Computed example of a mutant assay.
Amino acid sequence: MTRHAVLDEGPAVALGALLGVEPGGFGDGLPPMWHAVYLLDWWRRDELGVDGHPLHGMPEPPPGAHSRMFAGGRTRHLRPLALGIETTKMSQVVRTAQKVGRSGPLTFVTVRHDFEQNGERAVSEEHDIVYRPLTSKPVDSKPGDSAPAASPQLRRPAPSAPPDEPVTPELTFAADPVALFLFSMYTSNSHRIHYDEAFALSEGHAGLVIHGPLQILLMAEALRARGTNVFGAEFSYRLLKPVTNSQTLTIGEPAGEHGSGCVRVVDALGTLVARGDVTPLN
């Protein structure tokens, strides 16, 4: 799948307002990870399923009713993306794997996105997406839908996370319903787990789910604020567990000898929920 567009500053200004970042002009190009609000898919309503996700597209969802979660990925920033220039985004599925987890069968799909300007690649990233078959019927499902009846007691088992590590706070972000709605809108993400609490509960979450890509952007902003150069490097990130309900996230550098390229996200209880690491490209 290929998309073309001239990048204008509107999406970046909107994202900066949400993040509380004063853009100060984009003469040097977009900050790392801000390409998340560009060259998006805008789906017709009849192309979306009951969960708000596209019925078809990139990647193609597995058959049947599934929950979808963004697990992490890797982004190589070769050079800043400049505004006002024709940009090409090329997307393709590069890996698919079937596994069995504690909650049952899982489908792992890795999608690669490459952004090019003036015939040169500027950003290359891989997103790891996990699909899990639903064992309950989502709210608002229609008669004849394939999933079995809903169980209000259903709760998704919390994935195990590594032991928490102390973090030196650098940024905080209030992830309330308004912020989640705005981020969904700016990234063309109509997945109902981020703005429809009843639906999120029906899929086994404890409340509205805070976007994984939002946490990744916050980690990138912490790195930028401390002066870590992400260009000419790979920024890898992993979402360790779903983060739900309105709360303030803390983003910062882990204590100990990790280096300036390490960044973590902890929730309001101090639980480590996401990690990022910058590695220079050879």
Score class of each variant (00 low, 15 high):
D145F: 12
F115R: 01
A122N: 03
K89P: 00
Q98C: 01
H127G: 00
T110Q: 13
D51S: 05
I129Q: 09
L106I: 14
L55F: 08
F70A: 07
S91Q: 11
V50P: 03
V111G: 11
H66L: 06
F70I: 08
L106S: 09
S91I: 02
H53L: 15
P105F: 08
L48W: 03
V94Y: 09
G49F: 06
P143Y: 05
F115A: 00
S136G: 07
R68K: 13
L48C: 03
K99L: 12
D114H: 01
V100T: 14
T110P: 02
P148A: 10
S103C: 02
R102E: 07
G57D: 11
A97D: 09
G119N: 09
V50D: 12
D51W: 02
G104S: 07
G144M: 12
R68V: 06
G119F: 10
D145H: 15
N118R: 14
P61D: 12
T75P: 00
R102C: 01
E60D: 15
D41T: 09
N118P: 00
E116R: 10
K99P: 03
H56L: 15
L55A: 06
T75F: 04
A97P: 00
R44G: 02
D128A: 07
P105L: 09
F115E: 00
L78G: 03
E125I: 02
R74E: 15
T110S: 14
A71R: 10
R74T: 13
G57I: 13
T96L: 08
L40R: 04
K142Q: 15
E86S: 13
R112P: 01
R76D: 11
L81F: 07
E60N: 14
A82E: 12
M58F: 13
E126S: 14
G72F: 04
H113Y: 09
F115I: 09
A97L: 04
A82S: 11
E125F: 05
G84F: 02
H77P: 00
R79A: 15
Q117H: 07
A65Q: 08
Y131T: 12
V111S: 11
G101P: 06
D140E: 04
G84L: 06
S146N: 14
M69H: 08
F108N: 03
R76W: 06
T110R: 08
T87M: 06
M69D: 02
G104V: 03
A82G: 03
G119L: 13
Y131F: 15
R44S: 08
R76S: 05
T88H: 01
V139N: 01
L55K: 15
G104P: 05
H127W: 07
P63G: 14
G49A: 10
E86P: 01
H113T: 08
S141L: 03
P59C: 13
D51T: 05
V123Q: 04
H113D: 10
V123C: 03
L83H: 05
V94W: 12
E125Y: 08
A97M: 09
H66D: 07
S103V: 10
D140P: 00
S141Q: 05
G73W: 08
K99A: 13
E125N: 04
F70P: 05
D46P: 00
L106G: 04
G52C: 02
D114P: 01
T110V: 13
A122R: 05
R79M: 07
P133R: 10
W42A: 11
R74L: 10
T107I: 09
G64H: 13
G52S: 02
Q92F: 03
R44F: 09
R121V: 13
R74Y: 05
